[in-house]
């Protein structure tokens, strides 16, 4: 236990950065999909309001125009969709992105 590497392994130890706990995008059951036509810059031709970027608890939304969502890590919490003032973000069921999604997965 005297060496640092062991100590940091022997407790739960996390550093800031993408990917602690792996690609958490696989946890998602609904995907936030942003429509740039409805997003603030699209409507007013002004910089984005960045409410989604500000509210995202996982820091997976960029501060660009339009904001981009990193689906490798987005857990699908839906806060961005809830907070978006122009309702540009819609939560879409992940099953609709699966290959052959039109088929009934229970069959």
């Amino acid at each position: 236990m005297k060496d640092k590497k062991n100590y940091c392994k022997d407790i739960s130890f996390s550093e800031a950065g993408p990917g602690d706990a792996g690609k958490t995008g696989s946890w998602r059951i609904a995907r936030p999909v942003l429509d740039p036509q409805i997003c603030t810059p699209g409507k007013r031709n002004a910089p984005a309001c960045y409410i989604c970027w500000l509210y995202c608890p996982d820091g997976v939304i960029t501060r660009g125009i339009p904001p981009k969502i990193d689906y490798e890590y987005c857990k699908g919490c839906g806060i961005c969709a809830q907070e978006c003032p122009t309702k540009a973000i819609t939560m879409v069921d992940e099953s609709s992105f699966l290959e052959g999604a039109e088929e009934d997965p229970c069959k």
């Binding site: 739960s12 550093e15 800031a16």
Partner: peptide, 9 residues
């Protein structure tokens, strides 16, 4: 070197 100790496992 910020770190988070004993986070959820």
């Amino acid at each position: 070197r910020p770190a988070n100790l004993n986070t959820v496992t």
